[in-house]
Design a protein around this nucleic acid. Structure first.
Lengths: 249, 249
DNA sequence: GCAAAAGTGTTTGCGGTACACCCATGT
DNA sequence: ACATGGGTGTACCGCAAACACTTTTGC
């Protein structure tokens, strides 16, 4: 049982891919990476992801990918599922890129997909670290992703939508202090429909998920100042585990 | 693009494990395999599973495991998620068994878990094919599974419970013709609580998921003969995809 | 006739939904 | 004064929940 382990190596058959969602106040965004393909003018848009190290936990790998890209730690994150279609990396342009970075680009890779929710204020992509650059993209526009990342992104979004109905996860997309309008717009964007102001407020308050702050105001807006809220941490952890059976959206 | 492919090989890092559920009319059962460990009197109870072939689709691998064990095809099956804790195979007795069958028993294996629902009448374990024997086990008793299979089984069951609330999947556990009592008992066992007869019937009929059969009777029972039902196939496929938002159990 | 499960309606309460007006603020 | 979003209360409806008695059959 010596402490000297063999050097960690990337397992060529296993990867994680992360659908990282953000909310800018009016639209749901997905954080994508643009990768340049040598010998080709076309660029690939992909989800952030990487092969997994031998002996690295799946959740850890996903956190690592997120951390390396954004610098963020302790971000809400949830596994969606595994994607392993043998053809998932076999499109012509995908192979072109893989050949430039993988020892065995032909190899089938099973990827474990995660989605995660970040407060967009906590991370602004820098204009191209090196060959690759990250950017926030509107989810609806995000057609034409490389590999099967389109499918993964939609699966992640579906999962998010379902989870949002029974779990208090939306807050991960918002700043600490937020207005009811912010919160409602977030729900509307994700659920894909408008909600009634009064009913929404009632529901949220009944669940005791949000608390009003004394510091009740915004400033300088051309209308009545809105009350600020934060979410109730203790209820959060409870409901995160158990969910609430009938949220009723 | 010649048709001659390299021989399929098992990928040492990837497996599938299946939580196969059955219903005997009063209890929910899980199909487990008892594996003898050489050089040890103790036997391991595991979920059916296997390494995945290179280039084999995940769903295909899961179907293969089920087919090889039970002979059944076209069975309802759903991915739960991937399990990849580096320590998941590291318990002492688990290692003992792995050493007897794996080239690299130390290797971390990521397993993709599935749950599947079968009609127990379609498969009765034969008393020990060879070194391994399968048997139906009550889910609640199924403590002491090898590896992390306990955790996987519970995760699969949780998934089943959630899915049952919004999807018409329970029928996969029943024979083609069944009574309302059968159906209700099934729901009660999975949801873990009793349900009201009349309310249950109403709900099921409103969803138009079950149809009464003319052949209305059982026989030789010491009470009023019950109507037989089958499930409505066309609604089934519809609701399977879309779910029904408010099932309301 | 007795035990055992089948079958059947009604009432109550909660929660979801729909809906319209006044308020505070900046320009 | 006007435009903009903030904030509030009520009425209705449908669905889930609770609940008890009669029927058929085998023994």
């Amino acid at each position: 049982m010596s402490k000297q382990k063999k050097v960690k190596q990337l397992n060529p058959s296993l990867s994680v891919d992360c659908a990282i969602f953000g909310f800018d106040g009016s639209e749901l965004k997905l954080l994508l990476i643009e990768r340049s393909v040598e010998s080709c003018t076309k660029k690939l848009l992909t989800l952030p992801g990487d092969l997994i190290f031998d002996g690295e936990d799946l959740d850890t790998a996903a956190s690592r990918v997120l951390k390396e890209l954004t610098g963020l730690k302790n971000i809400f994150m949830k596994q969606v599922r595994a994607f392993g279609d043998p053809k998932r990396l076999k499109k012509r342009e995908d192979q072109a890129w893989l050949r430039s970075i993988r020892a065995k680009p032909e190899e089938r890779v099973v990827t474990i997909a995660y989605y995660s929710l970040v407060n967009m204020n906590d991370y602004t992509p820098k204009p191209s670290s090196f060959a690759q650059s990250a950017r926030w993209v509107n989810l609806d526009k995000s057609t034409d992703l490389a590999f099967d990342h389109q499918e993964i992104a939609f699966a992640a979004f579906d999962q998010l939508k379902i989870n949002l109905k029974n779990h208090p996860i939306g807050f991960n997309l918002l700043p600490v202090k937020f207005t009811f309008s912010d919160l409602q717009k977030l729900y509307e964007v994700i659920l894909g429909r408008t909600l009634d102001k009064r009913n929404f407020r009632r529901k949220m308050l009944k669940l005791k998920l949000v608390e009003p702050l004394n510091e009740k105001e915004e400033e300088g807006v051309p209308h009545k100042r809105s009350q600020l809220f934060q979410f109730n941490t203790s209820n959060y952890v409870l409901l995160l585990e158990n969910g609430f059976d009938n949220f009723g959206f």
